[in-house]
Amino acid sequence: MRFVDAFIDKAYRYSLGVEEESATAYLSIPVGSSLIDYEEYYALSDEEYSGLLADSGAARLFAEQCRHRDHDDRLILKPGWNRGTPW
């Protein structure tokens, strides 16, 4: 998998982009565990992706919901036993 960010919001710690092989749009957030820091990628429809790119307030809200694990059903890569904590 190759995740390519199209937009990065450093202040609110999320990015939007497209996974190249599957053409799946995503929003990602940084997380960290005791072993490693990494990103969690949440799948978006093309319509959601366009909307979040155009509306930073909606994107920040969605990212915050992901931090609260409200959209775990959209995770592109399922976490292992030592899932990280959003930061």
Rank of each mutant, 00 (worst) to 15 (best):
V18N: 09
E21F: 08
E47F: 08
P86Q: 06
F62P: 05
L52Y: 15
M1C: 06
E64C: 02
D9M: 01
Y41S: 04
L52I: 09
G84M: 02
E39P: 00
E48R: 11
M1N: 02
F3D: 08
S28L: 03
G17Q: 12
E64H: 08
S34W: 00
A23W: 07
A23R: 14
Y38Q: 01
W81N: 08
S34F: 02
P86D: 03
H71P: 01
M1W: 10
A6F: 13
C66R: 04
R60C: 01
D9S: 09
D9W: 04
A23K: 14
E21S: 14
S15G: 12
A11F: 07
Y42H: 14
E64T: 14
I76S: 05
R13Y: 04
G57Q: 05
Q65K: 13
D5T: 06
Y41F: 15
D37A: 09
R67F: 07
E21I: 07
A58E: 11
E21W: 01
E48V: 06
D72M: 01
S45R: 09
Y38K: 01
D9L: 03
Y12H: 11
M1Q: 09
S15D: 11
Y26T: 03
A59L: 14
E20C: 03
F7K: 13
H68P: 00
E40V: 02
H71A: 06
Y26D: 08
H68M: 13
Y41G: 07
W87D: 12
W87E: 11
T24I: 07
G80V: 04
W87G: 13
F7M: 06
S56V: 04
I8K: 12
P79Y: 05
Y12M: 07
G57F: 01
R13N: 13
M1P: 07
A54N: 13
I36T: 05
R83N: 09
A6M: 12
E64A: 15
W87C: 09
D5Y: 07
L16A: 09
A63I: 05
D72Q: 01
H68S: 10
L53R: 15
E47G: 04
G57N: 10
Y38G: 00
D72P: 01
E40Y: 02
